[in-house]
Simulated assay, not measured.
Amino acid sequence: MTRRFSGTQLVIATHNRGKLDEFAQLLAPLGITCTSAGNLGLPEPEETESTFLGNARIKAHAAARATSLPALSDDSGLTVDALDGAPGVYTADWATTPTGRDFVHAMKKTHAALAGHPQPWTAQFRCTLVLAWPNGHDEWVEGTAPGRLVWPRRGQDGHGYDPMFQPDGQTRTFAELSAAEKNAISHRGQAVARMLAKCFT
């Protein structure tokens, strides 16, 4: 049986301020106060799994155990069919450089890896959300945005691989859509809507 969230305090298992703000805004109308693992000084657990679900579970359960509060985490990334699903759970790693995280570098690396592969370069953005309780129970949902990769990259908005990703049914990339247009079809937008329907409303 699905377990529903019944409290007023929730930990977002992230050290990303933007992600905390995004979830806090979504949950505020339900009377839920959010804080983050980063704000609480919790260490970032090592993500050792090979799936989005596995890594999201690591983060959610670590935060729930440390705080004795329910915790929500997400793990997301880009899977490219011609690259056998890469970068997948290693999406952020592909952006790592000696000077920090650089997604222009990641997009160039992805484009280089696609050399010789015929277009269209079909791909999917994927997001898995896990809601975990201190007793070890969890609920999870997924969201997927199918599309294709384009080159040269287009658009100034968005983040990550957005300038290279054109979702199905659109002539613009994620980086050329408004935030509202993107959220209506994005992998994270879908996952959040499913989690809200499953466990919060």
Rank of each mutant, 00 (worst) to 15 (best):
S186F: 01
A191S: 11
E181H: 07
D168T: 12
H187C: 03
F174L: 13
M164H: 05
T173L: 02
N183G: 10
G160P: 02
Y161K: 05
Q170T: 11
A191G: 07
E176M: 03
Q166H: 05
Q190F: 01
R172Y: 05
Q166K: 12
T173V: 08
D162E: 11
Q166R: 13
A191Y: 01
R172S: 13
G160T: 09
H187D: 04
T173K: 01
G189F: 01
Q170F: 13
Q170D: 14
G189Q: 00
A184H: 07
E181R: 04
Q190C: 12
G189I: 00
P163C: 15
G158H: 07
E181I: 04
G189C: 10
D162P: 09
G160F: 01
F165A: 04
F174C: 14
T171D: 14
Y161R: 11
R172Q: 14
G158A: 10
M164S: 12
G160K: 04
T173Y: 06
T173I: 05
G169Q: 10
A179S: 15
D168W: 05
A180V: 14
E176G: 09
S186H: 08
P167G: 07
P167M: 11
R172A: 13
I185G: 06
P167F: 00
P167I: 05
H187Q: 10
G160W: 01
Y161G: 09
K182C: 01
F174E: 09
M164T: 08
A175Q: 03
F174W: 13
R188S: 00
P167N: 08
G189T: 03
S186W: 00
A184Q: 13
H159L: 14
T171Y: 10
G158K: 09
T173E: 04
R172F: 06
L177A: 06
G160I: 00
A179W: 10
K182Y: 05
G189V: 02
R172L: 07
A180D: 15
E181M: 04
A175W: 06
A180F: 09
D162R: 11
H187F: 03
A184S: 09
A184D: 13
A191V: 00
R172T: 15
S178T: 15
E176K: 10
K182I: 04
H159C: 12
K182N: 06
A191F: 03
G160L: 02
T171Q: 14
Q190N: 11
T171G: 10
R188I: 00
A184P: 03
D162L: 08
R172W: 05
Q166I: 01
A184Y: 09
Q190H: 03
Y161A: 05
G160S: 14
P163I: 12
S178F: 10
A175T: 00
T171C: 10
G158E: 08
Q166Y: 06
K182L: 01
F174Q: 07
F174A: 15
Q190P: 07
G158M: 07
E176H: 07
F174M: 12
F165T: 02
G169D: 13
D162Q: 13
A179T: 14
T171M: 11
P167E: 09
N183S: 15
G189N: 10
G169L: 00
A191D: 05
M164P: 06
H187E: 01
S178Y: 03
I185K: 06
E181F: 00
R172E: 15
E181S: 03
R172I: 06
R188W: 07
Q166N: 14
P163S: 12
D168M: 03
K182S: 02
E181W: 09
P167L: 01
F165E: 12
A175D: 02
F165Y: 09
A179K: 15
F174T: 10
A184T: 08
